[in-house]
Simulated scan of single mutants.
Amino acid sequence: MRRAAILLVGWLSLVAPALAVQPDEVLADPALEARARGLSAELRCMVCQNQSIDDSNADLARDLRVLVRERLTAGDTDEQVIDYVVARYGEFVLLKPRFNVRNALLWGTPALLLLVGGAFLIVSARSRKPAVNAALSADEKARLDAVLKDGG
């Protein structure tokens, strides 16, 4: 029984999320710390790229966490902190990019191309004329009737 408990605790320690925030980074004010954790969850680690700086153990992520906490302690609002980090590292640092014209073009271009391609296909199909659109002559009709009457 004891061995099973040890294995369970060991397995759970591997499954649990790694919290990268170091004790020396934590702010004394719980409200500011909660804001810092919220902002850190929105910012991408530039080294890991698919992790937030809150989850990453990279040195750059640690520097960004410290920077966020310094800005909050200095009295910046959440938006000012995000704007500062984006101005310094670019919009790629945001895990959820802001909506702007460039993003709209990025997401809208495939749909626009599908619409344009579909319209082109419809217009080209309607303008296409059948290859043979002539009526049968009297002689051809007679031969066709004879073939059909004979059964092939």
Rank of each mutant, 00 (worst) to 15 (best):
S13N: 13
L14P: 03
L14S: 11
V15C: 15
A18W: 09
A20E: 02
A20W: 01
P23F: 03
P23N: 09
D24W: 11
L27Y: 02
A28Q: 14
A28G: 12
A28I: 12
E33H: 04
A34S: 14
A34F: 08
R35M: 15
A36D: 06
R37C: 11
A41Q: 11
A41M: 12
E42F: 01
L43V: 00
L43H: 00
R44V: 06
C45V: 03
C45K: 01
M46G: 04
M46T: 04
C48G: 07
C48N: 04
Q49E: 15
N50S: 12
N50V: 10
Q51M: 13
S52Y: 00
D55F: 03
N57C: 13
D59F: 05
D59E: 15
R62D: 05
R62F: 04
D63E: 15
D63V: 10
L64H: 00
L64W: 00
R65N: 03
R65T: 01
V68I: 11
V68W: 00
R69F: 03
T73A: 09
A74E: 15
G75W: 06
D78F: 01
Q80C: 10
Q80P: 07
V81K: 01
V81W: 00
V81R: 01
I82G: 01
D83F: 06
Y84L: 06
V85P: 00
V86K: 04
A87Q: 08
R88H: 07
Y89M: 05
Y89A: 03
G90E: 08
E91Y: 05
V93Y: 01
L95F: 06
F99T: 15
F99I: 15
N100R: 12
V101M: 10
V101P: 07
R102F: 10
A104V: 12
A104K: 07
A104E: 12
L105P: 02
L106A: 13
L106F: 12
L106N: 11
W107Q: 13
W107A: 14
G108T: 03
G108D: 08
G108P: 07
G108S: 10
A111F: 12
L112D: 09
L112Y: 08
L113T: 12
L115T: 07
V116R: 04
G117W: 05
A119V: 09
F120V: 14
F120M: 11
L121M: 06
L121F: 02
L121K: 02
I122A: 12
R126N: 10
K129D: 14
P130F: 01
A131L: 09
A131D: 05
A131C: 04
A131K: 05
V132N: 04
N133H: 04
N133E: 13
N133Y: 03
